[in-house]
């Protein structure tokens, strides 16, 4: 097999993913091919049930496909065991979830410290870095608040801070604006774009929200468990058929 070209951040080839029993099988991905480059923000779009989240999970190493290969920053994921996948995610991935998934009993800064503490950083250092990251997302002074004391947009900012605090090369965002209004969603995407813009970082965003397409470099459209089209210019995608 030829080595992954330096420009490629994520490559999934011929990925199959089925759920359920053989008699009652649901095909989530069928011979799916996907590629994301370093330095870009790529969006995965498509109708509900087309396999976007499944493909995202496969790329994130939280699901292991039945067939096909997945490479993330040169590392083949399909041959790794659970512990190795966990260690890989710890170091290389940052997550922004649809429902934020901030731990409500922890303060804002403690939530942001989590990925650093998982990596084994000392408490004081993690605290300092989390605080600096919160400063970058515009939440200075809110460090000791609880997440439920913040607005939806602010909570998503915390989630972005948490996703980027350990400087992962791959940022995965699952419907990051679906729980936000139009303006807040736009602000959040601008923030993601600003903070993640780096030649060594790749951002994969799954979304239904056509209002944020403009923040992407490319858009991959999914249909029936595979990538049907890739738009190099997001303006070319007609949102009406999504």
């Amino acid at each position: 097999m030829s080595p992954v070209a330096p420009i490629v951040a994520v490559r999934a080839s011929g990925v199959d993913m089925f759920f359920g029993t053989p008699e009652n099988q649901v095909v989530a991905l069928k011979q799916a091919d996907f590629e994301a480059r370093r330095g870009e923000l790529i969006m995965l779009v498509g109708p509900s049930g087309c396999g976007k989240t499944t493909l995202l999970s496969v790329i994130a190493g939280t699901l292991t496909p039945q067939a096909g290969t997945v490479e993330v920053f040169g590392q083949r994921l399909d041959g790794l065991g659970q512990e190795e996948l966990t260690a890989f995610r710890r170091k290389h991935l940052g997550f922004v979830f649809q429902s934020f998934n901030l731990i409500p009993t922890l303060t804002v800064v403690e939530n942001v410290m989590v990925p650093l503490l998982i990596q084994g950083l000392a408490n004081d250092e993690a605290h300092a870095r989390a605080k600096a990251m919160l400063d970058q997302v515009g939440l200075k002074g809110r460090e000791d608040d609880r997440p439920d004391g913040l607005s939806g947009g602010q909570q998503q900012r915390v989630a972005i801070a948490r996703a980027l605090v350990h400087e992962p090369p791959l940022l995965i965002c699952d419907e990051p604006t679906s729980a936000l209004d139009k303006d807040t969603g736009a602000h959040i995407m601008q923030l993601v774009r600003d903070l993640s813009r780096s030649p060594e970082r790749c951002v994969v965003v799954v979304t239904h929200d056509h209002r944020i397409f403009r923040f992407s470099d490319r858009i991959a459209e999914m249909e029936d468990g595979r990538i049907s089209r890739v738009f190099d210019d997001p303006k070319l995608l007609d949102a009406s058929h999504l």
Binding site: E83, L93, F95, N101, V114, I118, Q119
Partner: peptide
Amino acid sequence: ENLKYFAALKAMGAGMGI
């Protein structure tokens, strides 16, 4: 009640040992 947060921790790379 915290299951989804534990799932999030697992996704973020916290092993079962932690």
